[in-house]
Design a protein around this nucleic acid. Structure first.
Length: 556
DNA sequence: CGAATAAAAACTAGTTTTTATTCGGTGCTCTAGT
């Protein structure tokens, strides 16, 4: 229904983008997001880095003419955004609220926001968890809350940065303003989890393309750790000789240090540096700056390196060990070839490395821990019924005081209990039922994480086109790319043709049911196997013939 | 789960095999001491 109001909102948005931020026009996806926000909808924006996601909330802030709160995972990322707004033609200012700013600076920023001078406030989820900060921000009545790198809600919530899982409750406490969640990675379960955790209300979902035709994907199978190392060294030496800059990912800090030392021997120490979370902050900033400026050619890193790295001429990305999931793999690989020129991504695959991924998934809490947490909440809130309490909004520190475990764990337990309670859909559930339900949530999370690790194996061992496989994982259909190793070896075209010919009984996005794994959706189909994302069991790859013979998989 | 290290064992004094133990990623914030 392209009526006049829609048109004028779009025109106005374009004018605001030009006058305030110096952009002549909005891309179609950007305009869709701004328009939906203008109508008061929540929006989930899934778009690759460099697609101009931030312009959407910048323009929406001007259009709605009020303060925008941006929740962001990294202080450095926030500072980049503040600087960008400061450089823009707009009169409206941006400020960061973090532990780096003094209390006086924070108060000044809030006062200026109240006066309408500061239109964009950036803060971390941890700071938003502070009740005083939240009260001050709520008093500003933000017209929009943006959650940047929203996949962290899914990836980081469980135990690493638990305030991410509480974000939904924290935002609700600000008066439930409209929410814009932005991410560059989003397989179906990640999308669902973002929407659920942030408590988004029938969000408009805007997805832009994920295909990166300039990146050539290759998997090399390595017999042992030595073969892995020497293959990595040979490849990096070759790329470096060609004058290319690139990234090498390893899974542990010692592995990173070791590889960096070897590569320094090969290429000269001034060209290579290590980067991981255990290094001093100063040193890490130095390495990132040097790499961005071209003073360093190769960075060997753990997953710590990457967010906010937008260097256009990264020519290669090597995974010296397997990544933790297809999701992180595509994120890391996507840092190559941002300039659109050809780039190479090679995974040195050794199945034993998947063990580390399984370890990082972690365990589930015990029934006793959940029960004791629930009892403490009951004591704290004095509520007669669990129905009246938003468990995710309970302060974990208060719970942790009463129990022999820390704030972090308390936060995780509270979120699980809240998820378990909501899932029961019972007005006044028994504590025991809530505990059981929370445990099931935790186990389902664990199964999903483990199945993601397994999907890396499936990717590495497939004969199909790498691009076709990965994009299917993200819910996009794609023809064989023609330049990955499988395509060049000729196996990809055969595998693809077989699927086409086979009149496959389970096409992607078919809703299916399995007696053991429950309900799921087909994400990918090969000639003799089918990959299903089950609601409770995660990703599973099943043999089609076996499934049909034993009637294991039925359409629903 | 598996790799690296330490400790124990084992047709027995110096070296190899077996078993046990430890460790492993991502960052915010606040606090204490320089």
């Amino acid at each position: 229904m392209p009526d006049r109001t829609t048109h004028s909102a779009r025109d106005l948005a374009r004018d605001l983008a030009r006058d305030h931020f110096g952009h002549d026009h909005l891309l179609p996806g950007q305009a869709d997001v701004v328009e939906a926000l203008a109508e008061g909808s929540d929006v989930l924006l899934v778009a690759p880095t460099g697609a101009g996601k931030s312009l959407t909330y910048l323009v929406a802030g001007r259009l709605l003419d009020g303060p925008v709160l941006v929740v962001s995972p990294l202080l450095a990322l926030e500072q980049d955004q503040v600087d960008a707004v400061t450089r823009a033609p707009t009169e409206v200012a941006a400020a960061r609220l973090s532990s780096v700013e003094t209390p006086a600076q924070r108060e000044e920023a809030l006062a200026r926001a109240a006066a309408g001078e500061v239109g964009y406030l950036f803060c971390s989820p941890e700071l938003l968890a502070d009740a005083d900060v939240r009260a001050a921000l709520g008093a500003l009545a933000p017209v929009l809350v943006t959650v940047d790198e929203a996949h962290c809600v899914s990836a980081w919530g469980h135990s690493f940065r638990p305030d991410y899982q509480r974000l939904g409750a924290l935002v609700a406490d600000l008066g439930s303003p409209p929410v814009l969640a932005m991410t560059a990675t989003a397989a179906a379960p990640v999308r669902d989890e973002i929407v659920e955790r942030l408590r988004m209300r029938e969000p408009r979902v805007v997805v832009t393309g994920f295909d990166r035709p300039e990146i050539e994907l290759v998997v090399r199978r390595c017999r042992d750790a030595d073969a892995q190392t020497s293959a990595t060294r040979a490849l990096v030496a070759e790329q470096h000789a060609a004058g290319h800059a690139g990234l090498v990912y390893a899974r542990t800090r010692p592995a990173v240090e070791e590889l960096a030392a070897l590569l320094a021997e090969d290429l000269g120490g001034e060209h290579v540096a290590a980067y991981h979370g255990g290094m001093a902050r100063r040193r890490r900033e130095q390495v990132q700056d040097d790499f961005m400026a071209g003073r360093l050619d190769v960075v060997v890193a753990t997953s710590a390196f990457g967010m906010g790295v937008d260097k256009p001429d990264v020519r290669f990305v090597v995974h010296a060990q397997v990544p933790g999931s297809p999701d992180t793999y595509y994120q890391e690989v996507g840092r190559a070839g941002r300039d659109g020129e050809a780039a190479t991504a090679v995974m040195m695959y050794r199945p034993e490395d998947l063990a580390l991924g399984r370890y990082f998934v972690g365990g589930v809490p015990s029934r006793t821990e959940l029960r004791r947490t629930l009892d403490v909440v009951g004591g704290l809130t004095r509520a007669d019924s669990l129905a009246a309490v938003d468990l995710a909004a309970v302060d974990p520190a208060a719970v942790a005081d009463e129990l022999p475990f820390g704030r972090r764990k308390a936060g995780r337990l509270l979120t699980l209990l809240e998820l378990g309670r909501v899932r029961l859909d019972d007005g006044d559930p028994e504590p025991r039922a809530v505990v059981d339900s929370a445990l099931e949530v935790a186990e389902a999370q664990q199964r999903l994480e483990r199945s993601r690790v397994e999907m890396v194996r499936t990717y590495a061992e497939t004969h199909r086109c790498r691009v076709e496989f990965l994009l299917a994982y993200f819910g996009e259909q794609h023809e064989p790319c023609g330049h990955c190793d499988a395509c060049r070896a000729g196996t990809a075209a055969d595998a693809h043709a077989e699927v086409e010919r086979a009149d496959h009984p389970f096409a992607p996005s078919t809703a299916v049911r399995h007696p053991e794994f429950g309900d799921g959706t087909v994400t990918d189909a090969e000639a003799d196997t089918v990959t299903v994302l089950f609601d409770d069991a995660g990703y599973r790859t099943l043999d089609v013939r076996l499934a049909q013979e034993h009637e294991l998989l039925t359409a629903r």
